[in-house]
Write a protein that binds this DNA or RNA. Structure first.
Lengths: 248, 248
DNA sequence: AGCTAATTCGTATGACGTACGAACAGACGC
DNA sequence: GCGTCTGTTCGTACGTCATACGAATTAGCT
């Protein structure tokens, strides 16, 4: 465990020797994951992880160089959940891509913090496996390599963005439900602002219109509504990519 | 400035009175923004912001309740950059949405940290203006309200995900360029892993194939390549949405 | 001038990541 | 058995962060 400031990914750094280490990196990642899921990313502390393992804080630094390494391990542990078992892998590029996308969204949403710590993501073994699987999904489509990568990238983009926004929407809804004052304050502020400038589109949607009921369209706020909206957007994207890539 | 733990958005909290405050929330946001752009989000510290303003650290707490408020102000300041001047606003829903999407991506990529602090985003005045503008973009398409919201959401999802991944790719490329050792270590680790399991798709792409040159497709790594890939994905998505929403 | 409330900010607290080095323990040669 | 080496654990200490508290200063008022 060179503690030095080398910039290798944690997986390229030799782990503890094999005399008698009490823990493993996997255990550390698993504990950190459990804490993050239960109490949020901010609750993940070196001290906390160590305590949960029954170790002293500094013991962790025998297994990783820095907390960023722990986060990398957590991210990779999540990516493992993205992998679809071989026998469930659908035939046909469209079904396969859809399955991967759907599962990716589910997993990302199950670990909301993963999206906010995405910047420091490293490319680990499970990232590689996930990528391999995405390639396999597009294998039968008769596409040149660049087009396959582009298709995968477009879907990945859409999935990540949707997961991000879905998590955001659900968080907002949950917070709002727990705190009526905030809703009141937000609405009060919003309506005041609405009147102070030209917000004609918004007014038409949410405000009272001159003669009668306004349209009153609300963005979807339940998990199901968000999921089905995701589904429609994904299929639209695939339609469009198929058309542009000249696919069946 | 009730310092208490109320959950109102910062914009609903009365600011400093008007006797003689030395600063404004806007100045604070601007300074914080400059620091984040120049040195990264982690460099944004209450102490640092205050120093840059020539104030004591605790003075900031007369203007905001908490650092999260500062971040909210920063986010909203960024959203202001998304707004397209009225005279540049294109006619036709497709051109208008494309313009909004393009600009959004540019701005998000210009402030990479905005994506990683997106979870604590609050809905401020510029968010409202941006939303109004998105609604205006879809106004002429003859769509029912729900369909308009769905179209906007799909594009937003794709744009955010693409910006996220583009920033990630460019960051990786920059770091790699600055640190050859890391590239070497990553490649060494990657090729070792490649041999240790079944990665047939990846091998076909990057490895040597039996009789001759492999395909050697590389994901795009320059800003231009990423931008044109974004453009194609966006148009594909719009194609698909147009088809599914029964649009011209 | 004197009062009051607005505004500034020094000090102190507790949490965090982690550098350093001491302490402990298992394996191996003798 | 007994040292010895080195793998493993972890207590202590440091610097940084957000921020609670309350004292000091100042601007506008009568």
């Amino acid at each position: 465990m060179a503690t030095g400031n080398d910039s290798r990914p944690i997986w390229a750094v030799p782990g503890p020797a094999d005399r008698k280490p009490r823990y493993t990196r996997e255990q550390i990642a698993a504990v950190a994951l459990r804490i993050a899921d239960a109490e949020g990313f901010d609750a993940v502390t070196m001290k906390r992880i160590a305590a949960e393992l029954g170790a002293g804080t500094m013991t962790l630094y025998y297994y990783v160089r820095t907390k960023a390494d722990v986060v990398a391990l957590m991210q990779d542990a999540i990516l493992a959940e993205l992998l679809i078992p071989d026998d469930e892998f659908p035939a046909g590029w469209r079904a396969a891509i859809t399955a991967v996308a759907r599962r990716t969204r589910q997993v990302l949403m199950a670990h909301p913090w993963s999206l906010s710590s995405l910047d420091e993501a490293q490319f680990g073994p499970n990232a590689m496996r996930h990528f391999e699987q995405s390639l396999a999904a597009t294998a039968g489509a008769g596409l040149p390599a660049e087009a396959r990568l582009e298709l995968i990238a477009a879907v990945d983009d859409y999935v990540a963005g949707n997961a991000l926004h879905s998590v955001e929407a659900l968080t907002r809804a949950r917070v709002a439900a727990a705190d009526p004052d905030m809703v009141a304050a937000a609405i009060a502020y919003g309506t005041a602002l609405l009147e102070s400038e030209d917000f004609s589109q918004l007014k038409a949607l949410y405000g009272e219109s001159a003669g009668g009921q306004a349209e009153r369209a609300m963005p979807p706020l339940t998990e199901d509504a968000l999921a089905s909206q995701f589904e429609r957007g994904l299929q639209a994207l695939l339609d469009g990519m198929a058309g542009r890539l000249d696919l069946a």
